[in-house]
Design a protein around this nucleic acid. Structure first.
Lengths: 192, 192, 192, 192
DNA sequence: TATGAATGAGTTTTCATTCAT
DNA sequence: TATGAATGAAAACTCATTCAT
């Protein structure tokens, strides 16, 4: 009486997710290069060998972690961006970024660690062209309407400031007053 | 005519500096863990063995690189902070940060890469207590005088935004309009 | 209506044969060491676990494959050798070898790949003493009658040339003109 | 007082050759796949790590072994083939093959083991086009002049028989009467 | 009987560090 | 002081075999 197809599938899915979580933790703590598959497997409570039953390589594990997560966030952002761009939507976009950040700090940490690697950079650029264009389009209109001196610069400044928020939070999640900063961002860029 | 003691020491110091520069380049390009001592020594044009005559380990090389550099920057910042804190001084502090960033992007990149490692974190915290306190003291006064709602929050926001600038620049030095962003920062936090 | 004991056995045997064929294909294509049990079981369309219900180990699979096959060929050869050794029988022996080769190239390839392994060598030597002796006996008589200078050498030369034929064919079955070579062999060693 | 450039070079060359010899022995005995770098390094009396100071990978070791050797033999063969193709030259070519075979049985064994691998096949085909063409050209003329029924077939038969000689010798170098077989070959294909 | 998840020993490979010269 | 050959511990990865179901 072997397990059914469904049982096997369930096991695989659960294990896969469990491995991803363990890898995320270890990678984010130690950094991708410093982290070893051995440590990840220990964290997951399984043998090293089994890791390779689920992921072809350490690299694939990383790609999956970053890709999965960013895709998810990106989808939400794009959905919001496709709505008419009101003040409230802009504020929501900021709130969404912060919410996602607070919910998945490890993924973000990992992504930031890796964002300098050329391979990762390339993938990202190809993958998120659409949302990039949307951001630019909507924010250009927004800042233009607000009579900004140089809307493109304002977009850059906004993006840079958001990055600062994220990095600062990730460096010290306990002490960084992320919620106040969120409000400050909204006040600054969206206005009251 | 054998060289004097001083001449030897001068040569040693110069070489040490040369090794540090080479290591910086390699570490920043490849990432600390991915970089090999072999590559560093090749970059420096000396043998692997000789490296260990100047530095006890790869780790020490890293510590020295980060420490040296940050000390240097910190000294300049402290000097400015100790002057009466006028608008112009605040603007200068921002300009100084940007200038230093542009002059030493590799050190900054390396520092940012490593800033999550607990050892590095600890060192930093101990080392720059003084300047931290100065910043807080001066900026509190500054923002209070400007009738900020919550001066402490404004400091955090300022710091976070500076971080964003640095990270954004380091991620893409060619395209990021660092000079415009500097102006934008001054306008935002210092005013005209 | 439950199956009878015989039916079960028949199914088992059939499956066993199926596994052997699959293993043969994979082993011959990838080489024994490079081939994985996983691939063999996929080729056979059964699970890895079930393989071990039929064969104790990868090694046993190999032994069975080589043994089975060579026994089969050997039996046919011995049958022919026990007949009066006419020119026609000699020609038939050559034809038989070529025919068997063309029909079972994979087994031959596998055997040739493995023929250097000491374990395989030993087994072979023990197993085919009888046919070896028969060959020598018959061919000695044959070449002696033909007034060969040194009948034993002629036997060696014949064997060596047959080996060349087999190896050359296995290396490039598509382009090697095996049928012409068969004729050439017969002409050379049997005469017209 | 470090070693001079020449001393280092001498060490490297000697070591490299020593490693190649050890690898050849182990690869030929156990087969490439079955042989481990660990065993090769033990045979060479050095650490596993040092192997990678001399060769990038196990694969490169193999390529070097096969390539080096075959190039060497090929050069000699080509030299002979470029001379006017007399009976004596043909006989010399056969003698050369046998001589080379006796001198480097391990390389040949290894080559034969690997000759089925697609990568190796391709390399060989590209590498020895010239000598292939020369062989065909010269032997076609030779067999045509001898009034062979089908010169191309005769070439094939010759090549196949040479292969048989080599394989048979390699399978049992002690007992196979290689010198007699050489004479037999010459008698058969070159004539008295 | 049948499955494929799981193991663990073994393999190739890397690289900071040491050391003979 | 200076070299790079040499080491060895640890990393990534493979795969025959076992085992819970």
């Amino acid at each position: 009486m072997p397990r059914t197809q469904e049982q096997f599938e369930a096991i695989r899915l659960e294990r896969r997710e469990h491995i991803l979580q363990s890898a995320l933790k270890v990678f984010a703590e130690d950094g991708y290069h410093n982290a070893s598959i051995s440590k990840v497997s220990k964290e997951a409570g399984i043998s090293k060998g089994l890791m390779y039953n689920y992921f072809e390589s350490k690299e694939e594990l990383l790609q999956t972690l970053i890709g999965n997560y960013l895709d998810e966030e990106n989808a939400k952002v794009v959905a919001l961006l496709k709505q008419p761009f009101t003040d409230e939507v802009f504020a929501d976009l900021i709130r969404l970024s912060v919410e996602v950040l607070k919910k998945n700090p490890l993924q973000w940490k990992l992504y930031m660690d890796m964002a300098n690697r050329p391979e990762v950079r390339e993938i990202m650029q190809d993958r998120y062209v659409e949302s990039q264009l949307l951001w630019v389009e909507k924010l250009t209109a927004f800042f233009t309407q607000r009579n900004a001196e140089d809307p493109m610069m304002e977009i850059q400044f906004f993006a840079s400031t958001m990055t600062g928020l994220k990095v600062s939070y990730l460096m010290d999640p306990v002490n960084f007053p992320i919620d106040e900063m969120e409000k400050r961002m909204i006040k600054l860029f969206v206005g009251r």
